[in-house]
Write a protein that binds this DNA or RNA. Structure first.
Length: 318
DNA sequence: CATTCGTGGTT
DNA sequence: TAACCAAGAAT
């Protein structure tokens, strides 16, 4: 029924697809899995240029990841964000070792793997006839079917409707390529798109779909970051909650400290709030912190905000 | 179903 | 340049 459309998509993918992406040129489910987790809510450019290869060099196989300390995994993940991904990746490796599950049902049971990622791994590593539903595919579906709004269930139904079960690898990769190169959030190149003619969005104003999301304004958190220094060593603490999970950081509090030298302030924008913190250097010992020499800190995984603090520290050194 | 999770690229 | 957005999942 969609044969004609599917053929046009295949042709387009053959000539214009991003065929050099490294995770498209391996049949190792582990390497495909790592790429899928890193790429969640993260642009291809970032993963490709900074994180994919170093991670695989340090953890080349599933067992090597499973047997590594979590702190080592977090250090490789440093700067990539959404750190529970690293924790889940590590735990999933331990649950799955020595082999990745060979089915969607097995994959989706692992922590950090939802329906779309399970389908992606299954389609790309095993050729399973299942569609994916990432931000690129969603945007295409909104426009192709002329919808301004749709819930997840509806989007999955539309994804199944457009899907080509005969060519799951090529279809899914092509959809992401179209979303990333032609069907962009704020611009489109419909005349180059294999879906033009069948796409309701292309018939009118494609940017009319989907309806813009109403975003809440991010609240500001004002805090004080206090760097405790004792005998030339710096006090840090490893975070335990879900926020910045497992990363080390300097002490943070709501009120200014009793004493200490004022450094510059820092601003760090997170997904759901904005941190504005005054940084202090306090020559004192505080309980509950672990003390490191300056060079030792480089071996720890720190958040972006704490890296800014570290930078202030070296800049302020007399 | 809504919120929580980072950081950097793009416009 | 501020706002939007990115190969989503867990809660």
């Amino acid at each position: 029924m969609n044969v004609d459309l599917h053929n046009r998509l295949l042709q387009w993918y053959e000539h214009h697809g991003r065929h050099t992406l490294p995770w498209r040129n391996t049949d190792d489910p582990y390497r495909i899995w790592v790429s899928e987790i890193m790429l969640q809510q993260t642009q291809v450019k970032t993963v490709l240029e900074r994180f994919y290869f170093p991670f695989l060099e340090r953890f080349p196989t599933l067992p090597s990841l499973a047997s590594a300390p979590l702190d080592d995994v977090l250090k490789q993940w440093e700067g990539l964000g959404y750190y529970t991904r690293a924790k889940n990746l590590h735990r999933a490796a331990q649950l799955a070792a020595p082999y990745m599950p060979g089915t969607v049902e097995g994959l989706i049971r692992l922590p950090g793997i939802g329906k779309s990622t399970a389908h992606a791994i299954a389609a790309f590593a095993y050729g399973a006839p299942v569609p994916i539903l990432d931000a690129n595919v969603k945007r295409i579906l909104y426009r192709f079917f002329g919808r301004r709004e749709a819930d997840e269930k509806t989007l999955w139904r539309l994804a199944e409707k457009l899907f080509d079960p005969e060519h799951p690898f090529e279809f899914n990769q092509a959809m992401m390529d179209i979303g990333a190169t032609l069907c962009l959030p704020k611009s489109t190149a419909c005349d180059a798109c294999p879906f033009e003619g069948a796409c309701k969005g292309a018939a009118g104003d494609p940017l009319y779909y989907p309806a813009p999301k109403k975003r809440k304004s991010v609240p500001v958190r004002e805090r004080h970051i206090v760097v405790y220094r004792h005998n030339g060593r710096y006090g840090l603490k490893q975070r335990e909650g879900r926020f910045l999970h497992g990363l080390w950081g300097f002490h943070e509090q709501t009120a200014p400290p009793e004493q200490g030298k004022t450094l510059e302030s820092i601003v760090q924008v997170y997904s759901h709030f904005r941190l504005e913190a005054q940084v202090w250097l306090c020559e004192a010992h505080r309980e509950g912190l672990t003390y490191f020499q300056r060079e030792e800190i480089d071996a720890l995984a720190l958040s972006g905000a704490d890296h800014k603090v570290l930078k202030q520290l070296s800049a302020s050194r007399p």
